[in-house]
Every structure is written in C-alpha cells, then in structure tokens.
C-alpha cells in the first residue's frame, strides 16, 4: 500500500509536504481533531495516538515516516453511542474538566493497560520482572506523559483503575 497510511482502518494518501507531522496530518488534512495539539514538542501528551499498537506523540513524528502504518486515534476507540470502557469510565469518574488533554489521556491509557498486560515494567515497578498490577503507583508513573492542567489526575487514575479491575486482562 504505497504512499498511504491507515487511520482507524481507512487508508489515506500521505501529504505532499514532508514537513507535515502526523499530528497536523490527522487534525488538518483528515479533520480528525480529537487528537490535540497542546505543545507540539512532545512535552504534554495531548497528541497521543496508537501506531501499530504502541502509543506515541504524534507531534514528534512526520506523517511520511508512517507509510503503511496503522494509526488509531480517539475517534477510532469509540463514539458517543458506543464509547469504549475507558471513555465511559472517564465520564463516570469525571476524569477531565476542560477536556483538551482527554483524548490523549484515553489513547495513552488504552495502550498502557496493554503494556501492563504484556508484563512491561515501569520506573515505579519494584522489580523488573512481571507480572505488574494496574496499581495507583504504576498507573501514575505510566501516565506521566499526559499532562492535565485542570488537575483531574486523581479522577483519571480512578477511571483507569475501574476499567483495569473490571476488564479481564487482555
């Protein structure tokens, strides 16, 4: 599939200008504005998307570098009529206020729960060998790449823990 990247299952041609970041490609070229630009320098996490199963900052990568890759954005995780468990839990636990960091938090948390299930350690892990639990301490470290200036962290952690505890490990 040359010169295309796949976003939420749909292939799209790459931009003409190689300077276009994956973030601007999603927001501007595709109109998928759920992915947010908070800092444009990998310092806030609002632009987090999942590429080939891994969460990344879409602001610090060029669209052209992702030819043939599978990109999942917040729009691909769930819709209002059919929200994902994390999306639902964020509403229930008030895991946001202004909402601007929220899609990034949810994309990040979605991939983060997979990382725990895969037995990946974090800086907060007592040992480097798994398995690891979605404890408060683990979630906080693993989610630290997603800033929330409204200060909804406590509720975000509650929302994620709720999902981690109610979902069977992947």
């Amino acid at each position: 599939m040359p010169d295309e990247l796949i976003v939420n299952g749909t292939p799209h041609p790459l931009p003409q200008d190689p300077r276009v970041t994956l973030l601007d490609f999603l927001r501007h070229d595709l109109g998928l504005t759920g992915t947010k630009k908070g800092c444009d320098h990998g310092q806030c996490g609002a632009c987090t998307v999942i590429v080939n199963g891994l969460r990344i900052n879409s602001c610090l990568t060029l669209a052209a570098m992702h030819e043939g890759h599978q990109v999942t954005t917040i729009e691909g995780l769930g819709i209002a009529d059919e929200p994902s468990p994390l999306q639902r839990a964020f509403v229930e636990h008030d895991g946001f206020q202004c909402g601007y960091c929220t899609p990034g938090q949810i994309c990040s948390a979605t991939a983060m729960l997979d990382e725990i299930a895969n037995g990946w350690p974090s800086d907060a892990s007592e040992t480097l060998d798994g398995p690891f639990e979605a404890s408060g301490a683990e979630i906080r470290e693993r989610m630290s790449g997603n800033l929330c200036r409204c200060g909804a962290y406590a509720n975000i952690v509650a929302a994620i823990r709720h999902v981690a505890e109610s979902e069977p490990a992947a």
């Binding site: 729009e75 999306q87 929220t102």
Partner: peptide
C-alpha cells in the same frame, strides 16, 4: 451528575477554537 458534554469530550468530537472546519 456526570458532565452533560462528557461524551463529546471523551470521544474527541467536542470542537475547540482551532478545530472548526
């Protein structure tokens, strides 16, 4: 009560200033 605009925010469909087509 949960925020009435909550689903729009968590699904990325709530439009912020720069996001109007």
């Amino acid at each position: 009560v949960s925020r009435i605009e909550g689903l729009a925010k968590v699904t990325g469909t709530a439009p912020y200033a720069a996001e109007y087509p």
